[in-house]
Computed example of a mutant assay.
Amino acid sequence: MSPFLYSLFTHDCRPADGSDTIIKFVDDTTVIGLISDNDEAAYREEVDCLAEWCDTNNLLLNTEKTKELIVDYRRNADPHPPVYIKGTAVERVSSFKFLGVHISEDLIWTTNCSKLVKKAHQRLFFLRTLRKNHLSSDILVNFYRFTIEIILTNCITVWYGNCSASDWKALQRVVKTAQRIAGAPLPAIKDIYRKRCLKRAGKIIKDPSHPSHGLFTLLPSGRRYRSLRTKIIIINL
C-alpha cells in the first residue's frame, strides 16, 4: 500500500515545464531535466518548485541525501554551477543508486555490474555451506535462483544490453561457480535477459495504453518490427 498511497498523496506534484520529468516511487522522488543550448533555467526552476511544494505539503526535503548527476557527452562542456535548495548546495556525484540500479554519469554499467557481482559472491558462501551439509542439487538450485540469480538479474532488461564484454564475463563467472557448487546446469545470464526482454515487449505490444506501445511498429512485410531510433541527451538528476 505504501507506493500507492505515496502516489495518491503526491498526485499534484507535477513538472511545470515540458522538458522536465518527475519520477515518484515511495519516498524517492527524482527530477530529470533535458538541458538544451546551455539553458538550465527550466530545470533549476523545477527544483525550486519541488522544494516549495514540499514545504506547502509539510514534507521534509533532506538536502544532505539529495544528489545530482549530470550526463554530458560534449568534449568541451561548460562547467555546471551547483544547484541550491534552501541555500544549501546539492552534492554532485559521478554515480548513484536508483531503485537498486547504479547509474553512472557516463551511462556505462561497469559500476552496477561490479556491485552485483560482489553481492552475489557473498551469497555463494551460503551455497557452499549448504553443499557441505549434503543437501540435494534441487535444493541448491532453488537456493541459487532465489538468493543469487535474483541479484544478478535485477532490472536486467535496463542495463544488460549495454554492458561491456568484461562485465558479461564477470556475471557469467558467478553463474559457472554456482553451477559447479550445485552440481546442476543453470541458465546463462544472456538467456535470462533475452527471455525477459521478449516477455516485456510482448506485454507492451498487447497493451495500447502503455507509453512505449507506439515504439513497436511493423515493417511493410508484417513479419518484423522496425528498429528503435535513439539519440543522446543531457540528463540532470
Rank of each mutant, 00 (worst) to 15 (best):
K206Q: 11
H210K: 10
N154M: 04
Y6E: 12
S164A: 14
N58M: 08
L107I: 09
I139K: 07
G202Q: 02
K86R: 15
P220T: 11
K199H: 10
C49T: 10
T230P: 01
D28P: 00
H121E: 14
K132G: 01
L116Q: 05
E91R: 07
S114Y: 02
I204R: 03
R200V: 05
T10Y: 04
N76M: 05
I234C: 05
V174I: 14
N57A: 04
V47C: 10
F98I: 03
G202C: 03
I22Y: 02
L60S: 11
Q172Y: 04
A184M: 10
C54K: 03
G161M: 11
I139N: 04
L99R: 08
V141H: 05
A182G: 05
D17L: 01
N154A: 06
W109Q: 02
I32K: 01
F143I: 08
L140S: 01
M1D: 14
V90K: 01
C197R: 10
L127A: 07
I103P: 00
T56M: 10
R194V: 02
G100M: 08
I22M: 08
T129F: 09
E46Y: 02
D138G: 10
V83T: 13
G18D: 15
F143V: 07
K169N: 09
E149S: 11
S166G: 08
T111V: 13
K97V: 09
S166V: 10
I22R: 06
R224Q: 12
E68H: 02
L34P: 00
I233D: 12
P187H: 11
W109Y: 05
A120S: 15
S19C: 12
Y144W: 05
E149H: 11
I189T: 13
L116N: 01
I189L: 09
H80V: 14
S166M: 10
T153V: 08
E40V: 07
S136K: 12
R123M: 13
G18K: 15
V175L: 09
G183I: 09
Q122W: 10
D37G: 00
T63Y: 00
K115I: 11
K67P: 00
F96R: 04
E105C: 14
V101W: 01
R224L: 12
L50Q: 05
D12P: 01
L237Q: 05
L124A: 08
V26C: 07
L99F: 08
L186Q: 01
H102K: 15
L237V: 07
N112H: 15
L34W: 03
N162K: 14
K97H: 04
Y225H: 11
I156D: 00
H210T: 09
